[in-house]
Simulated scan of single mutants.
Amino acid sequence: MNKFKIVKVGARMVMERFFHTKKPEHTKNEQLLDIEKIPAHIAIIMDGNGRWAQKKGLPRVAGHREGMKVIHKIVEKANDLQVKYLTLYAFSTENWKRPKSEVDFLMRLPEQFLHKELPKLKKNNVQVRIMGDQSLLPAHTLKAVNKAVTETKNNNGLILNFALNYGGRREISEALKNIVKKVEEGSLHSSDINEQVIESHLLSKGLPDPDLLIRTSGEKRLSNFMLWQLAYSEFWFTDVLWPDFKAEDFVEAILIYQQRQRRYGGV
């Protein structure tokens, strides 16, 4: 190698180190993924924040704060893998039963998360949506969420759907009320009611049903989450608490999903 080439190669190495132009290495599981079979819609029940904090002798809110940091990593990985829809169970209709101090803290998290992450979400072409009863949300929470929804509405990349003050039974109940109202008004005949009509009145209208449900913390139940939509979804449960959940765990869930055969009730 002549002197000119040595200088050229050395300069390139310095530039790579300075500007971090090297691409991060993929994990072994990620290398095994079939990019053609990435689930289009992934839903996650982010569970275990309180237990994570308790194990460390910290207040529960510390677990929620740490859990918020994980959302950024998972959204980034989902976007990287070209997942089309990611629904996160952020706050349920039952969570209002928790101590007021904890609820107040939880209602501040969307504001804090979006204040920090919105510029990145916009840059990465992510569209933010919200699914739930907005009428009970504090003004500051609603303002932050609506700002994110408005400023990303024209993005056509990953749809990041937050289930906030959401409950599956309430969703179905409200859908049925609206359908009955249309029947009474004469704009819909009772004989026309079918699955498609019901789905068009759900809060998730416009989104496909989740292909994969992930729940952290070792619990194995739906907790009133997307009861209609998860009828034929694949479930993946892990003992990992949400604050400890990593991109590698997310990839593992997808890899296991790809190894299953979805029959939808068929042979």
Rank of each mutant, 00 (worst) to 15 (best):
residue 166 Y to E: 11
residue 32 L to W: 01
residue 68 M to T: 15
residue 151 E to M: 12
residue 241 L to P: 04
residue 249 D to W: 05
residue 70 V to N: 05
residue 232 Y to A: 00
residue 56 K to F: 05
residue 146 N to I: 08
residue 68 M to N: 14
residue 24 P to R: 06
residue 86 L to T: 01
residue 104 D to E: 15
residue 58 L to K: 14
residue 5 K to Q: 12
residue 156 N to E: 14
residue 189 H to N: 13
residue 134 Q to H: 13
residue 223 S to E: 06
residue 111 E to W: 13
residue 7 V to G: 06
residue 252 E to L: 06
residue 172 I to M: 03
residue 179 I to P: 07
residue 59 P to D: 10
residue 100 K to C: 01
residue 171 E to A: 07
residue 43 A to D: 00
residue 122 K to F: 00
residue 14 V to Q: 04
residue 173 S to E: 04
residue 83 V to E: 07
residue 95 N to Y: 12
residue 28 K to A: 11
residue 137 L to S: 12
residue 115 H to C: 12
residue 135 S to L: 07
residue 144 A to M: 07
residue 216 T to P: 06
residue 133 D to P: 04
residue 190 S to P: 04
residue 195 E to D: 02
residue 91 F to H: 01
residue 114 L to S: 08
residue 214 I to E: 04
residue 131 M to T: 12
residue 40 A to S: 13
residue 177 K to Y: 01
residue 125 N to I: 14
residue 133 D to V: 08
residue 126 V to I: 14
residue 235 F to R: 01
residue 18 F to R: 12
residue 4 F to H: 10
residue 221 R to P: 10
residue 13 M to H: 14
residue 145 V to N: 06
residue 15 M to D: 12
residue 252 E to M: 05
residue 245 F to D: 03
residue 99 P to T: 13
residue 144 A to E: 00
residue 230 L to P: 02
residue 69 K to V: 04
residue 186 G to I: 01
residue 162 F to D: 06
residue 229 Q to N: 00
residue 123 K to E: 14
residue 194 N to F: 05
residue 99 P to N: 10
residue 237 F to D: 02
residue 100 K to M: 12
residue 8 K to F: 08
residue 252 E to T: 13
residue 28 K to E: 13
residue 56 K to V: 03
residue 98 R to V: 11
residue 154 N to Y: 09
residue 134 Q to P: 07
residue 39 P to H: 03
residue 80 D to H: 11
residue 46 M to Y: 03
residue 234 E to K: 05
residue 234 E to C: 06
residue 153 K to D: 05
residue 6 I to R: 12
residue 264 Y to V: 02
residue 106 L to S: 11
residue 152 T to M: 07
residue 207 L to W: 02
residue 141 T to W: 09
residue 209 D to F: 00
residue 206 G to V: 01
residue 62 A to M: 14
residue 174 E to P: 00
residue 92 S to Q: 01
residue 167 G to T: 10
residue 70 V to S: 11
residue 100 K to A: 10
residue 239 D to G: 06
residue 223 S to I: 02
